[in-house]
Structure formats: structure tokens, C-alpha cells
Design a protein around this nucleic acid. Structure first.
Lengths: 85, 85
DNA sequence: GATGATTTGTGCGTATGTATC
DNA sequence: CGATACATACGCACAAATCAT
């Protein structure tokens, strides 16, 4: 799994909310298995740079995926792909 | 001090500006002493939900009370009832 | 054990676009 | 058109938990 620049996948002028676009992009990698269970994803700050959005926007996207049981967050440690996915 | 739903105290059709109505409602709690000095008030987002208005509207109301030395704002921490009140 | 860096949690400050009157 | 209000998003700041040194 590579985490290079993904800013091109985000359309700041699209009707879809930014955090929804980020969540959708990350969700695709999880459900496809490209992101294996238990793997740690980059920090919110790193993801913000990767997607070219604000950290708060990434935070909302992660919160959405957590509510879908696709991600697990541990304060002070990081964010991980959920085990049950 | 309770912070339950206060949307009924705001009249969106009244001639008074919304932020002025919110400021007036909060001011009453401060000058009466129901809100003690140093106490932290709910976040702007929480107050927005409590009053049923936008966060920006609460922000303006707080700015008004700050100018009256009734509230003190600490960026990154929250909003508190001024000590000298 | 202590200290500082990292990471998430959350708050305020502000800008932009849109809707309504 | 201008004023008010709302939603979204970005930026910066502080708190708390964790980890490396």
C-alpha cells in the first residue's frame, strides 16, 4: 500500500463533501483488501497532506469509517484498519 | 446551570438579530449569577445546537459578551465567564 | 522515572459560497 | 442589492494519551 500524493482524487468543487470523498477513497482500499486488517494508516496530519485537505477534514472522514467499523482509532497511537473487516 | 434545549427562546422571525437574542439570553445567566465566574460555557458548536442556530451566530453573540467583559475566550481551550463580573 | 516528540481530541478564528428576506 | 444566517472547510492552538530517548 502506497501513500503518495492523492490530491488529484479530491474535487474541491464537487457537490460531494470533501470528507465524504476522502472517506470513499480510503474505504475502497479497505474493502478491496489493499489495506490489510490491523495495518496502521498514516497520521491525520500526513493524510491531510496526501489528500491536500485540512486535518479536520481527514478527522471527519476517519470518524465516518470508524462508524462503519472499517477503522479503529487509538488516541496517542494512531489509526488502524479494523480487524473484523 | 443546565444547558438543555433553548431553541424555544430564539425567535427566527423576530426583528431582533439572532446573535443579539442569544447574547441576551446568555447575559441574563451571567449577570444573575446563575453562571458563576470562571465557569466554562459549552463550546460554540454545542451552544449552536442548544439554541438551534449556526455556530457563527453563537460566535457573534460571544464576541458581544466579550466586549462587555462578561466572557473571556481562550483559543484552543474554550469560553469562560469573566472573573470580574 | 523524566522529558520531549508524535498522534488523536477538541476548541476558537476566519473565509467562502449559498439561501433568504 | 445589501444584510442576515447557515454550511462547509481551512488554519491555528491547547489538552491528553502514547511512545521513544
Amino acid at each position: 500500500m502506497t501513500w503518495e500524493d492523492r490530491s488529484g482524487r479530491i474535487d474541491h468543487a464537487a457537490p460531494l463533501l470533501l470528507w465524504s470523498q476522502v472517506a470513499g477513497d480510503m474505504r475502497a482500499d479497505i474493502v478491496s483488501g489493499r489495506l490489510a486488517s490491523g495495518v496502521r494508516v498514516p497520521s491525520e496530519l500526513a493524510l491531510a497532506e496526501i489528500y491536500g485537505v485540512a486535518r479536520v477534514t481527514v478527522h471527519r472522514a476517519i470518524a465516518e469509517l470508524v462508524s462503519e467499523n472499517l477503522l479503529t482509532v487509538v488516541r496517542g497511537r494512531g489509526t488502524f484498519v479494523a480487524l473484523s473487516s
